[in-house]
């Protein structure tokens, strides 16, 4: 693995709710004490349910929000203050892909204008060069030049997400954060977009952070995976390894709930109890109310994120010996086979 490009150390982000003149402010800890790094040529997957703080983490890592505690460095230097000229300049090097491509595009502007916008903002090259760059990228994501003149609502969901991707890449960024990039797409298109992301990441040597609630999708693209629960990382490791031997009870439950084609559905672990709520955090280990293995210590004491060796980190009192996951022999980061009919119908352009 190469030296890390982005490094976040013990970052936290909390929000105050109900803040008015005499109301008591209640503080919600969206992200607590997260340490992460990602290098060039590497994809880090972040998995978690809604409310796990994964999207906030993504925005923090991109410098779109500032952490209330901790520090983030990018390419050896701390992230500049939001809104400062250096921060504006840094935007060309780190970009984001959104969940709903239709919402991420301005419905009043043609595609070409929106794709050119990052270049316009940073005044990169002359108009001719910008337009050349735009059509270059349209082709790179498998769209034809004709798309450039269209408006977002005239495109299909998959085409829109390709446009959003192309726009994010137009300034040749080093880091790409994808926040649930395929969840809003038809299942038939998801695989195409995931493969495209995967290919472009490898081709351009990007550092990529891929955020999703869907473990199956994350494992297709990620080299390493971090599992988040209630604002904290509960487990982190190499993708294949993590799938083969999940150490944290929560990860085990997620892995067992994500069947892989060609395997049996046996041994599925059901999560019980309430889904996590950041405004109301349990004592001790945040996962203990839903954990089938919880002991008394889990209620009172928060486990630290401990190294298990082999790049694996786990935050669990009981994790000494990661258990073998029988259900998963297939390696991660595989290309998903495309249905040729769907592939053809998608690329109309």
């Amino acid at each position: 693995m190469s030296a890390s490009l982005l490094h976040a150390r013990n970052i936290a982000r909390s929000y105050e709710l109900n803040r008015h003149i005499w109301g008591n402010a209640s503080v919600v800890h969206a992200v607590s004490d997260v340490t992460l790094s990602v290098g060039r040529n590497e994809t880090l997957g972040i998995v978690g349910e809604s409310g796990s703080g994964k999207s906030t983490t993504g925005r923090l890592l991109l410098g779109l929000e500032s952490p209330t505690r901790g520090s983030i460095s990018f390419d050896g230097r701390p992230l500049p203050v939001i809104g400062s000229p250096e921060w504006r300049k840094s935007r060309t090097r780190m970009q984001m892909i959104y969940q709903d491509p239709l919402a991420a595009l301005d419905r009043r502007l043609p595609i070409a204008k929106q794709m050119r916008e990052p270049l316009d903002i940073h005044q990169a090259g002359n108009l001719q060069e910008r337009e050349t760059r735009v059509s270059e990228l349209l082709r790179a994501v498998g769209l034809s030049d004709a798309v450039a003149r269209r408006y977002p609502h005239e495109l299909s969901g998959g085409q829109r997400q390709r446009v959003v991707l192309a726009r994010a890449l137009v300034t040749r960024p080093d880091l790409l954060v994808c926040d649930e990039p395929v969840s809003a797409l038809d299942v038939s298109i998801q695989a195409q977009v995931v493969n495209l992301l995967s290919d472009l990441q490898a081709e351009l040597g990007l550092a990529m952070i891929f955020i999703s609630h869907d473990l199956r999708v994350v494992r297709q693209v990620s080299h390493r995976i971090a599992v988040m629960y209630l604002g904290r990382i509960v487990e982190e490791g190499e993708a294949d390894d993590l799938f083969a031997r999940p150490a944290h009870p929560y990860t085990r439950a997620l892995v067992s709930a994500a069947p892989v084609p060609g395997t049996k559905l046996g041994g599925r672990i059901m999560l019980r109890g309430e889904p996590p709520n950041p405004a109301n955090q349990p004592s001790g280990c945040a996962f203990h109310p839903r954990c089938s293995a919880a002991v008394a210590r889990c209620k009172s004491e928060m486990p630290a994120l401990a190294e298990l060796g082999g790049g694996r980190k786990v935050s669990c009192h009981l994790a000494g010996s990661p258990s073998e996951n029988q259900a998963d022999p297939s390696p991660a980061r595989t290309r998903v086979p495309l249905n040729p009919v769907e592939a053809a119908s998608e690329d109309v352009a």
């Binding site: 991109l62 779109l64 921060w87 504006r88 300049k89 840094s90 935007r91 060309t92 970009q95 984001m96 959104y98 969940q99 709903d100 919402a103 991420a104 595009l105 301005d106 419905r107 502007l109 916008e117 990052p118 903002i121 940073h122 959003v164 726009r167 300034t171």
Partner: peptide, 21 residues
């Protein structure tokens, strides 16, 4: 909305965000 956040994430100034979008 995401399209405004996206433009802001590109480093667009208030003027561009307000008057273009």
């Amino acid at each position: 909305a995401d399209y405004i956040r996206a433009v802001e994430a590109f480093g667009a100034g208030t003027g561009r965000v307000v008057f273009q979008h």
